[in-house]
Amino acid sequence: MYYRATYPSPVGVITLACDGSNLVGLWIEGQKYHGNTILEDMIENNDLPILDTAKKWLDRYFAGEQPNISELPLAPVGSEFRQGIWHILCEIPYGKVITYGDIAKKMAAKMKKESMSSQAVGGAVGHNPISIIIPCHRVVGSNGSLTGYAGGVHTKVKLLELEGADMSRLFIPTKGTAL
């Protein structure tokens, strides 16, 4: 059984989802793939400790603090490959960015492969079910393009600016899937 609650944030209304003890989802209203990893109905419940803990984590995050991902029990639903990519995302430091290619190299090494497709990585990053907390907004194109964020490129910019990321070499593409 899954439960949900909403959280008003500076980037829009957020839906939080849990299995009762672990956070399984965090989606920004209007986000691509919103709730797609939860295949059954989610029951509204604002009285679960995990959802309260997640809301407090978000309060601190949006206040400019740097809450640690490890403070929350996360259980995103996805394949072993996606889980591996999401684990790498959790290692990206606050306020820093990494490229899809860099993640592909790390994942290839983990899987003892010579190389890996950046597009495969992009698919896993884009389907991250716990946005913001598993920081997929910190992934950029190799040329500095702010592309590929399911919550929208302008939300990605807001989150990176909130974190104080160096935006000097980053740019919004004029066309692409993130717009």
Rank of each mutant, 00 (worst) to 15 (best):
Y2K: 14
V11F: 02
E163V: 14
Y7R: 05
M116L: 15
Q31I: 05
E91H: 05
G122R: 05
S131F: 10
N128S: 07
V13F: 01
T177V: 11
M111D: 08
V24F: 00
N22D: 07
S115W: 08
Y7L: 12
G64C: 12
E71Q: 14
E114P: 05
T53G: 01
E91L: 13
K32H: 06
I69Y: 08
K112N: 13
Y149E: 04
L16P: 00
D102T: 15
P49R: 06
L159I: 03
V24E: 02
T174Q: 14
P173Q: 06
V24G: 02
P93Q: 00
P173F: 13
R4N: 04
C18L: 04
W57S: 12
T147I: 15
Y94G: 03
S168F: 13
V153Y: 06
H137N: 07
S115R: 08
S117H: 02
D19S: 05
I85W: 12
G122I: 06
V13K: 10
K175M: 11
M42K: 12
F81H: 06
A54V: 10
D59H: 11
I88N: 09
G126P: 04
Y149T: 03
L89A: 03
I28W: 03
V153G: 02
K175S: 13
A109K: 14
I28S: 02
Y7H: 06
P8F: 00
L162W: 08
G30W: 10
G123P: 10
G95Q: 05
G148S: 08
G151K: 07
L74V: 07
P73V: 11
G101Q: 08
N46L: 13
L162H: 14
A54N: 05
L89F: 03
G151T: 09
T99M: 06
Y33V: 02
M167F: 11
K55E: 06
L58C: 13
W86E: 07
K156V: 04
K158Y: 00
L146W: 09
S131E: 04
E114V: 11
S131G: 01
A165V: 14
W86Y: 05
Y61H: 09
S131R: 04
E161K: 15
A109L: 11
I28K: 10
E29I: 08
W86S: 11
I92T: 02
G123L: 14
E40T: 14
Y100F: 15
E29M: 14
L16A: 00
L160H: 05
F171Q: 04
L146G: 08
C18K: 01
E40Y: 04
